[in-house]
Design a protein around this nucleic acid. Structure first.
Lengths: 343, 343
DNA sequence: GATTGGCACTCTGAACATCCGAGTGCCAGC
DNA sequence: GCTGGCACTCGGATGTTCAGAGTGCCAATC
């Protein structure tokens, strides 16, 4: 069992290691922290921590570094969020003021978060899963080319091009427009999708190729709404940290480019009672990111909660990064709430 | 002056160096290429090349590596494009078949190019500068929220949200819609912008806040069309090449995230008579990319030509990369042409 | 029983020396 | 103009030494 002082030693090791990037010895701990005991005592505690696999020694008789398990204990029990500096607060505030629209707001969010933390910033788009279709617009661009614009009540807009297998006149188009509008406007995204599927499956439908094409495109578009999206910034900061990732930042860059992996990872994280979550090192191994940690905070969007956070080396500054994610999440929630209220 | 054989030696050095990543010695040249002369003769030629600053020795008595000037001579006079393998050709063909729309086509383009070359791929969007506004759609989302959709005849679509300072009824909206449609549909992007500016400057306008807001948003949207855009893929491949960039890929990642630098660089490159261009090493120094080279090929889009290419280390395989860029550009031109024709 | 000073031991990393081989520049001879 | 030969240089691999940081353990102490 690890004593109370043992845990304080673990905390000291995590802090010092994150700061110095060098294994922490018993001597440097008594120098930098006022434990009021000697180095030999700290050594005993460290032996305990090592038995519990909370710390490890890179080689016989060097200092200790925290294990992933050690970071986990630190984050769960020993870390208190480090409050942001006023400069950081005002950076967030000014960055997030006056966004043009949702896309712009999300981009600003990740920019400020990467600026404040120096890490790669990630943000899930607000979920449109529970949103409703508020408008469907079908614009004729040519005899067989239509532009289909969908708008949801959660602020999401999407547009897509449909190329019809045959030409269509204005009267037919008006009829189609009315038919689809009646079918899906006001419906939840999922319900709208279901109705389109039903339509496609219906008896008479196969004959009408235009109807089928259009239903397919709209269905696609709805599908894109249901799909989670991610916005990121700060990939370049990884270049400074190559050595933190056992040599290669390739898996990280890969994940950033892929998006889908990070999206799953973000979705599957488990938040604590304050809406904060951390996924540490090997916990991310199933995603090919065993050298990285991700911290995130829930934020409240009209359609439900989503997450914003940062990805960095396992040896990151968890208290600061969690605090930054939380602060940004709060501002973001507030912006979205005001936006919602004004609608 | 450099003899003809001297240039062949330069070619051999560039090829071998790109392949092996190691300084090339006179001995290995006679071994790997059939010059029919002895190593000592090659050494004399190498001394000439060194006088001309086409090659350099990292240290006394090691092999030679090409200088940026050497690569330039190689690219301009000595390189012949290496034809793509049939596997590469079919990869391009299958990747680029059946794109859903312009965005999709561009994404597929850079994906296949990064896949074929193993480098970071870049593509300028077709320019909309000479395109015309073919449709303007204004959709009421709420009493004071409008969605403005612009479509150009070059296939570009953009949508933006306008929040009005006061509410507006259906009749007013119809009037506005008609007014703006008459003003800009059918006009070139630049002409449409000018007209909106004129409108904003007109006497009576200041009083009508709704009109002003709307004109501002549409003007913004037109501005976004005029702005060049870039799509990229393969940033993760840089991680494998860290050592090629004197230690840090940071400037490259930075440029990829910034976009604007790369956009300028791509725009300012000078193509040869075949529409191919290369910008080598220090030639990119003004852009902070003195360690990188970019090769690109023009492609033909309805609104004019744009470029597609790859960015990689100075010691890249220019013949292969140029060939790949050209091949992709040709397919892309063809796709866009078919698309245009079908419209 | 917890804490401590002391001590032997281990391991890393820097500094230094050595050596081999690859490659050059140059020169005299063909 | 080309070639073989030769002295020379330098980097990188290898080995050795040494100081320093840090540990584990133990007997003594509070």
């Amino acid at each position: 069992m690890v004593s109370d002082r043992g845990l304080q030693v673990l905390r000291a090791i995590v802090r010092d290691y994150v700061e110095t990037h060098e294994p922490v010895g018993s001597r440097s701990i008594v120098d930098r922290h006022s434990f009021g005991v000697s180095a030999a005592t700290i050594r005993n505690d460290m032996a305990m921590l090592e038995d519990e696999e909370l710390i490890t020694a890179p080689h016989t008789s060097s200092g200790r570094v925290p294990t992933d398990k050690g970071y986990r204990v630190f984050v769960n029990h020993l870390a208190q969020l480090r409050p942001l500096s006023s400069a950081q607060r005002s950076a967030i505030e000014s960055f997030l003021s006056e966004p043009a629209d949702l896309d712009d707001l999300m981009v600003r969010t990740v920019r400020v978060l990467t600026q404040v933390t120096g890490q790669v910033a990630l943000a899930q788009y607000p979920s449109f899963a529970r949103a409703h279709v508020s408008h469907l617009e079908i614009v004729a661009l040519g005899p067989n080319r239509l532009l289909i614009v969908l708008v949801t009540d959660a602020g999401g807009v999407s547009q897509r091009l449909a190329v019809l297998p045959e030409t269509i006149d204005e009267a037919d188009l008006a009829a189609l427009r009315a038919r689809f509008a009646a079918l899906i406007t006001g419906q939840a995204i999922s319900e709208a999708s279901d109705r389109l599927q039903t339509l496609l499956a219906a008896e008479e439908t196969p004959r009408d190729r235009v109807l089928r094409t259009l239903a397919g495109v709209i269905s696609d578009e709805l599908g894109a709404f249901r799909q989670e999206r991610l916005v990121m910034a700060g990939a370049a900061t990884l270049a400074r940290r190559e050595q933190d990732f056992r040599g290669s930042i390739h898996p990280l860059l890969e994940a950033i480019e892929e998006q889908v992996t990070l999206l799953r990872l973000m979705s599957e994280m488990v938040t604590d009672e304050h809406g904060l979550a951390a996924s540490i090192g090997t916990e991310n191994a199933p995603f090919g990111l065993g050298e990285a940690s991700i911290v995130a905070s829930n934020y409240a969007a009209p359609g439900g909660t989503a997450r914003v956070g940062v990805m960095g080396p396992t040896r990151m500054d968890y208290p600061s990064n969690l605090a930054a994610a939380r602060a940004v999440a709060r501002y973001l929630s507030r912006m979205l709430d005001e936006d919602e209220a004004s609608r």
